[in-house]
Computed example of a mutant assay.
Amino acid sequence: MTAIPPGSTIGILGSGQLGRMLAVAAAQLGYRCHIYAPESGPACDVAAAFTQGDYNDATSLAAFAKAVDIVTYEFENVDPRGIAHLAPIAPVRPGSRALDISRERPTEKGFVRDQGGTTAPFREVTSLAGLEAAVAEIGVPSILKTSMFGYDGKGQARLASPDDATAAWETVGGQPSVLESFVTFAHEFSIMLVRGLDGATVHYPAPLNVHRDGILATSTIPAPALVQTQVEAAVALTTKLAHALDYVGVLTCEFFATADGPVFNEMAPRVHNSGHWTIEGAVTSQFENHIRAICGLPLGSTALTGASVEMDNLIGDEADQWPALLAEGDAHLHLYGKHEARPGRKMGHVTRVWR
């Protein structure tokens, strides 16, 4: 195993805030970052280079790959076919198999079940008639989610009655979807696991995640006692998934804490919003550990830097609170540099560490 040394260039697919924080962490270790995306974004402000191009543009992707020493990605909606243009030229970590599985919900849930995980009952749906049949089979309340591209509550519709099927199908635009039965749960939490190039793994303490309007609002450490009793099983499953994928980097799995144990919700093959607290709240942030992993460096400690930590997302015009947040003194403010604050848009976050 040969490490990619500081001074090398890391290519990042995607120009959002996750890419921005990856680039900052990489710079602290002496790496340069080169962003590739269809449009400029927050990551471009802190990177050494930016290539504007489509994720399926074979010529642009090949030129990008030749300009970097390794490629990673900041979000999972990159077409795996695009990765095929990169891999023969520069190593891509995590590999395309994680994208293949995580980008489509039915495939992802089937993979998790095959690895011994528990998911909500679900059915793949490709038509209104199929949705009506799925509702009859798994019942209501349930939730319809597009198979691809949904995030932060987008591409979803809830069904309280079988009569809601037509409206739900219209809400998701008649796209291929998955119908999931509602899960009765007490809490939501996530496991952020890091797997190195040598197969070694570390994981962060599991945060309690609270969502508002389908968007993560807060992540808090330590999580409630019920979550603590389910972390071991959730980590074991996440580790099993990472090994099965031959994964390198940060892998995040979201879970429901139920009376019967952890129920898998979603997998993200990347650094994750619920781990932003690690920048100040852990010895090594998720962003630095992702860079360490993909470059073949030793993984850093995931221990807490305080007794408790809370991260609050700043959504839309909540970012306008920056003067008051800075006046707190011990609040760690992160603004992503987005030019327009829209409802539901993540504009930044603030972390507080209590010692």
Rank of each mutant, 00 (worst) to 15 (best):
P42S: 14
T72I: 04
H34F: 07
D69W: 04
S40K: 08
G7Q: 04
T2A: 13
A90E: 01
A3M: 11
P94Q: 10
G41H: 03
A48C: 00
D45Q: 13
A25D: 05
C44D: 15
S8V: 00
Y73Q: 11
V46W: 03
Y55E: 14
S96V: 07
G14S: 10
C33I: 03
A58R: 10
R20P: 13
S8K: 10
A26D: 10
Y55V: 01
A43D: 15
A65D: 04
K66S: 12
A25L: 03
A25T: 09
F50H: 15
D57L: 06
R20T: 04
S8G: 08
R97H: 08
G11R: 03
F64V: 10
A63W: 03
L22S: 12
Q52D: 03
L13D: 06
I83V: 14
G19Q: 11
A47D: 13
S8D: 02
D57Q: 04
G16T: 05
D79N: 15
T72P: 06
V78S: 11
S96Y: 04
V71M: 07
D45G: 08
A37W: 05
N56H: 04
D45A: 15
E39L: 08
G41P: 11
A43M: 02
E74Q: 11
T72E: 03
S96A: 15
K66D: 06
R20I: 07
V78L: 13
A23E: 10
E76F: 06
I35H: 07
T51D: 15
A26R: 02
Q28A: 13
F75I: 12
I12K: 08
I35M: 12
P5D: 02
D57R: 07
L86H: 04
L29V: 01
R81S: 10
H34V: 12
T59F: 05
I12T: 12
S60Q: 14
A43F: 01
G19I: 06
D45L: 10
I70D: 07
R97V: 15
A62K: 11
G95L: 05
A67M: 05
C33L: 04
N77T: 00
T9L: 05
I89K: 09
F50T: 15
E74H: 07
E76Q: 01
G41C: 07
K66E: 12
T72L: 05
R20Q: 15
P6W: 07
N77H: 02
Q52G: 15
A58F: 06
G95A: 14
A84N: 05
G53R: 03
T59C: 05
D57T: 00
M21F: 07
G95C: 09
R32N: 15
P6K: 13
I10V: 12
G14N: 10
I70G: 07
V24Y: 00
I70R: 12
P88T: 06
Y73R: 09
L61W: 02
A47R: 00
R97K: 13
D69M: 08
L29A: 14
Y73D: 09
Y73V: 13
Q28Y: 01
